[in-house]
Simulated scan of single mutants.
Amino acid sequence: MKTGGRLLIRTRDTCLWKSNTPGVRITIADTGHGMNQAVRERIFEPFYTTKGINGTGLGLWISSGIVSKHHGILQVRSSQAKNGGTVFSLFLPQEFKSM
Rank of each mutant, 00 (worst) to 15 (best):
M1W: 08
G4C: 08
G5C: 08
R6P: 00
L7A: 07
I9P: 09
T11G: 12
D13R: 06
D13P: 04
T14A: 09
C15L: 11
L16I: 08
L16W: 10
W17A: 12
K18L: 00
N20D: 14
T21D: 15
P22E: 01
P22L: 07
G23V: 10
I28C: 11
A29E: 09
H33L: 11
Q37R: 12
Q37L: 05
A38Y: 04
A38L: 12
I43L: 09
E45S: 13
E45M: 12
E45T: 08
P46A: 01
F47V: 06
Y48Q: 10
K51D: 09
I53A: 04
G57P: 03
G57M: 07
L60H: 07
W61L: 05
S64T: 02
S64A: 11
S64G: 03
G65C: 06
I66A: 05
S68K: 13
K69G: 06
H70Q: 12
H71T: 06
H71Q: 14
G72E: 14
G72L: 09
G72V: 00
I73T: 13
V76N: 14
Q80W: 15
Q80P: 06
A81T: 12
N83S: 15
N83M: 10
N83H: 15
G85V: 12
F91P: 06
P93C: 06
Q94T: 02
E95Y: 10
